[in-house]
Design a protein around this nucleic acid. Structure first.
Length: 191
DNA sequence: TCTGCGATAATA
DNA sequence: ATTATCGCAGAC
């Protein structure tokens, strides 16, 4: 299980996004609590040219991590109660990111179930951007942190276990946006 | 399975 | 006012 090379993350988000399908997201929360899942759904968000992106109107305190280096994690709080996580792509100053929308749990299933008490079926554990964060324990602590970096005993890694991205991913419009709905930047592993 | 709706607070 | 969401209730 090797680390995803930084080079893969350094490109336009719409190019990186489908390449992340099948990769393994592993969160180490310390004290033996390790949770991971295979990425099955993502969305690309661009910079100033993408009106649906948090970075569309320039840099603010919230979106600052998007302007950082490729491989930075951007976590935001929304709807008054949910955390969602992105992987930043592209060069410093070019605010692009891939929203992680769904994973299928691999490691730490018991901890994941405990973190998602409202999920009645296992398929509902991490099949949404906020569910994914709650399941894997991703929160504000991860905002602005580089993949692989240690944050007080916690870390997030992106790994390749040999699974290839789907040759033909399902593609469609991004979810939950009110502008730029015609841009097909949502990518899913075919079921 | 699907559709509609309320929760809840940071952001601009 | 809006929001890169979720889970519940009710209809079928």
């Amino acid at each position: 299980m090797r680390r995803v090379p930084a080079k893969l993350l350094l490109d336009h988000s719409s190019v990186v996004a489908p390449a992340l399908l099948g990769k393994v997201l592993r969160v180490d929360l310390g004290e033996g609590d390790v949770r991971s899942g295979r990425i099955t759904e993502v969305e690309a968000y661009g910079g100033l040219d993408d009106p649906a992106s948090h970075s569309a109107r320039g840099e603010t305190p919230r979106n600052r991590p998007m302007f950082g280096a490729a491989g930075t994690v951007y976590v935001y709080f929304t709807y008054g109660m949910h955390w969602c996580a992105n992987i930043v792509t592209g060069a410093v100053g070019d605010p692009q990111a891939v929203l992680l929308r769904a994973v299928e749990p691999i490691e730490g299933l018991d901890a994941i179930r405990a973190a998602r008490p409202r999920a009645r079926r296992d398929r509902d554990l991490a099949n949404g951007p906020a569910k994914l964060c709650e399941a894997l324990g991703i929160g504000q602590w991860a905002n602005g942190v580089a993949l692989g970096a240690d944050v007080g005993g916690r870390s997030i890694r992106l790994l390749d276990d040999g699974t290839s991205p789907p040759a033909v991913p399902l593609v469609g419009p991004r979810v939950g946006i009110s502008v730029a709905q015609e841009i097909p930047w949502r990518f899913r592993v075919p079921s």
